[in-house]
Nucleic acid binder design. Structure first.
Lengths: 343, 343
DNA sequence: TTCTCTACTGTGAACGCTCACAGAGCAGCG
DNA sequence: CGCTGCTCTGTGAGCGTTCACAGTAGAGAA
């Protein structure tokens, strides 16, 4: 022995080594690796045994070079960074996507486009074919990156409905309007009649839909819309706090409030406490998301659960379908009311 | 025109196209791409112009096939999943690493090893050479994955000191002991004398060090250690809540408490409020991390800032150095006291 | 002039895999 | 007996890059 395996990394076995070990040709090994059609049982068995003995793992670079696929997908975040840091949903989504992809043995490349330069670099990277498709997270819609990728023909699935891209891009979203309806009905069911709302950003479909659900339920209950009970935020804790203050100033008799995100609801609770209102006795508070933020508050936040686990797995499913040639699709998933103490 | 570029993705230009366009050979283009030594200024200029005109982007698979490098690194998380969801530091670390790598044009592959099967799959993937190195995050130390990777000779940098791996593996960590000292000194400086502590898990270096800092400062102030003032947690909110209850039961006269993580401090605040103690008047509370959790509480949490931005950039720096052949290294970074309302 | 040295450039070969194709063996059928 | 069709197998080519090497041109020294 002139060479030991301590220290340096040994050259891993190739398909050639496996073929020799199994007494077959490269082609047969390759066929076993990719589906195993047109392979005799005995050959397949020999190949699998050889793979186990040699510890062979396919060289994905060599495979990609010829197939043109990279067998990896990008997870692209085009949020301004504050939101990335704050949003407790994000972890859940990222983990869900990673795991759904892992089941297909597909690695996830994390890409964060904060600055303009990063955007360009990432778009170049993606359009060069270094990933097969992109999972896109950017709530600030009308994203130029999304449009560029779509135009380049890159398979793409957005989280939440992107605006301005027509029906040409796939997306997966929770049923925002229905969730909002459930929550407002719940608040009315508690006997509240002066129900306020802190909306999300109204240039996003989610923000618009949740507000629409609120209005629908009030209308169907025969309660008129009072503009003083409607303020808008941007999903951040701070905007929730500010929103609650504006509501209290404009409508001091408010007895419930539907807040379009849990994080904003945290801010609302802070403002209400400061104003001396008890939750839920004086003001019932309903959130949206069922994120970590919802259990971090006291009282615990009654909220609308977004099915992040299903959202992530559906995003992956739709993306992979698109990668293998299927048409774009949209998926809307049902939400669920989660009762805690705040309403 | 028989072929349009709408719909399908065009085959991207190769180094050959660039060479033809620039009127030079493949070799010259390759030299321009990789450092540009031994290339005449005129040739370099022509190549760069051709690259711009053609929109050429290097095919990393082809490059990797021959260099043996993948020019990508893995970000490996071996936490049980609850911690992943809860920990607000995690986002910051992940973002920091992604950006530090982006500056080197190196993509980050996210890998989450929850189950045993995932562990095996990921180790195979890594040891097959599909990434050049691994950024490892796993606070539960003595991780078998880390040991396997180290034994396979994979460049590795851990976040926080891993135990049981000797000095053979690089790590980057904040100065836990010094941070703890700062906080406890601060509490004593407020005139408090009955200072409790909720430690982190004592099978981790971080947990041990923060407790050691606490004890050191009490000793240097001539205050004896009261075991009733010491309880241990696991960094989770729930364990902070439970810890505070045990402390109040065992030492009702406690007038301050050092909590080894912000998340646990959230739980401590909840328990103190329930027990009718005012913060900071009755009990001063100091956290550790300066995570999102610290600003989410009311009162805002006085805490020890861990320099996550520097931790991530140092992890990347040390890893890349190791990839290019340098020896493992350890980096300890200073912490900083951040004053808010809770102490 | 000739030789050496340096700066630069072009050319095969190779990386490890998949794909297309050719061909072998065998069965069924006219 | 040949033809067709099926299952299975091996082989050569080629994916786009880098690397080693050979070779050219020009400058400077002998």
């Amino acid at each position: 022995m002139t060479m030991s395996n301590t220290g340096g990394r040994r050259r891993p076995p190739t398909i050639h080594d496996v073929a020799r070990e199994a007494g077959v040709s490269r082609g047969t090994v390759s066929r076993v690796l990719n589906g195993g059609h047109y392979v005799s049982p005995s050959a397949a068995e020999a190949v699998n045994a050889a793979i186990r003995r040699t510890g062979y793992v396919v060289n994905r670079h060599a495979r990609s070079l010829i197939t043109g696929r990279s067998d990896s997908v990008g997870f692209l975040l085009t949020e301004p960074q504050e939101r990335f840091f704050e949003d407790p949903n994000f972890n859940v989504l990222l983990r869900g996507c990673t795991q759904a992809l892992a089941a297909h043995d597909i690695p996830l490349l994390l890409m964060i486009a904060g600055t303009q330069a990063e955007r360009r670099r990432i778009v170049r990277y993606i359009t060069a074919g270094h990933v097969d498709g992109v999972l896109l997270v950017s709530s600030h819609s009308g994203d130029p990156v999304a449009e560029e990728l779509r135009a380049a023909g890159v398979p793409l699935v957005a989280c939440g409905k992107p605006i301005g891209l027509g029906s040409k891009v796939s997306y997966v979203a929770a049923d925002d309007r229905d969730g909002a309806r459930d929550m407002v009905r719940h608040l009315l069911g508690l006997g509240r009649r002066r129900v306020g709302v802190v909306t999300g950003p109204l240039d996003t479909p989610g923000g618009v839909e949740r507000l629409a659900g609120y209005k629908e339920v009030l209308a169907e209950a025969g309660i008129g819309i009072d503009e003083r009970l409607i303020v808008s935020g941007d999903y951040s804790r701070a905007s929730g706090e500010a929103g609650a203050e504006r509501l209290l100033a404009g409508a001091p008799d408010m007895d419930a409030v539907f807040v379009a995100s849990d994080l904003m609801a945290q801010g609302v609770l802070t403002a209400l406490r400061r104003a001396g209102r008890r939750v839920p006795q004086d003001v019932a508070v309903g959130g949206f998301d069922d994120s970590q933020a919802a259990v971090a508050t006291s009282p615990g936040l009654t909220t609308i659960r977004q099915p992040w686990d299903r959202i992530s797995s559906e995003m992956v499913r739709v993306l992979l379908a698109q990668v293998s040639g299927e048409d774009p699709a949209t998926v809307i998933l049902p939400t669920e009311l989660v009762r805690r103490e705040s309403a």
